[in-house]
Amino acid sequence: WVPTKREEKYGVAFYNYDARGADELSLQIGDTVHILETYEGWYRGYTLRKKSKKGIFPASYIHLKE
């Protein structure tokens, strides 16, 4: 896992994603996520609506905010 280059990196989910394991994070369309790390097509972070739950999710489900 590699920390993100920018201190504040955010994105928005444009697909729903159902977590398949305890380390994964479920997403709903429109969720804003804070991205902490990246690795081979995956991000690690949390949604702003539930900051206490961190997990991994596919990068392809996220539109990055500039």
Results as ranks from 00 to 15, higher is better:
residue 4 T to H: 09
residue 64 L to S: 02
residue 12 V to W: 08
residue 57 F to M: 02
residue 43 Y to W: 02
residue 23 D to R: 05
residue 21 G to W: 06
residue 14 F to M: 15
residue 52 S to G: 12
residue 51 K to I: 10
residue 15 Y to A: 15
residue 34 H to L: 14
residue 52 S to K: 10
residue 5 K to H: 11
residue 20 R to L: 08
residue 35 I to Y: 01
residue 58 P to D: 03
residue 11 G to S: 02
residue 23 D to L: 07
residue 50 K to M: 13
residue 5 K to A: 12
residue 18 D to C: 13
residue 63 H to G: 07
residue 15 Y to E: 15
residue 30 G to N: 04
residue 18 D to W: 08
residue 57 F to A: 01
residue 57 F to K: 01
residue 65 K to N: 11
residue 22 A to D: 13
residue 63 H to V: 13
residue 64 L to Y: 03
residue 61 Y to A: 14
residue 4 T to L: 08
residue 11 G to H: 03
residue 34 H to I: 14
residue 32 T to C: 15
residue 30 G to E: 01
residue 60 S to W: 07
residue 2 V to K: 12
residue 25 L to S: 01
residue 4 T to Q: 10
residue 22 A to M: 09
residue 58 P to S: 03
residue 52 S to I: 07
residue 26 S to N: 07
residue 64 L to A: 02
residue 2 V to I: 12
residue 58 P to G: 03
residue 14 F to G: 07
residue 2 V to M: 12
residue 16 N to M: 07
residue 35 I to D: 00
residue 3 P to M: 02
residue 28 Q to E: 10
residue 43 Y to G: 00
residue 63 H to R: 14
residue 53 K to Q: 12
residue 55 G to V: 02
residue 62 I to L: 02
residue 28 Q to D: 06
residue 22 A to V: 11
residue 57 F to R: 01
residue 31 D to H: 03
residue 15 Y to D: 14
residue 6 R to K: 13
residue 34 H to C: 15
residue 19 A to C: 06
residue 57 F to L: 02
residue 7 E to A: 11
residue 18 D to A: 11
residue 44 R to L: 13
residue 42 W to D: 00
residue 50 K to Q: 14
residue 65 K to I: 15
residue 51 K to L: 08
residue 9 K to W: 12
residue 25 L to G: 00
residue 38 T to N: 05
residue 13 A to G: 02
residue 16 N to G: 08
residue 28 Q to W: 07
residue 16 N to A: 13
residue 49 R to G: 14
residue 19 A to T: 02
residue 24 E to K: 03
residue 58 P to C: 08
residue 17 Y to C: 07
residue 45 G to N: 03
residue 52 S to A: 10
residue 8 E to H: 14
residue 48 L to A: 07
residue 49 R to Q: 11
residue 6 R to S: 12
residue 3 P to L: 01
residue 3 P to R: 02
residue 5 K to N: 14
residue 35 I to Q: 00
residue 30 G to P: 01
residue 12 V to E: 05
residue 27 L to T: 00
residue 26 S to L: 02
residue 20 R to Y: 05
residue 20 R to E: 07
residue 41 G to E: 06
residue 52 S to F: 12
residue 3 P to K: 06
residue 66 E to D: 12
residue 36 L to M: 09
residue 48 L to R: 05
residue 29 I to M: 07
residue 44 R to M: 13
residue 45 G to M: 06
residue 7 E to L: 10
residue 12 V to N: 01
residue 66 E to Q: 12
residue 40 E to R: 10
residue 54 K to T: 14
residue 39 Y to P: 01
residue 46 Y to H: 14
residue 60 S to I: 11
residue 25 L to I: 14
residue 16 N to C: 12
residue 9 K to N: 06
residue 63 H to L: 13
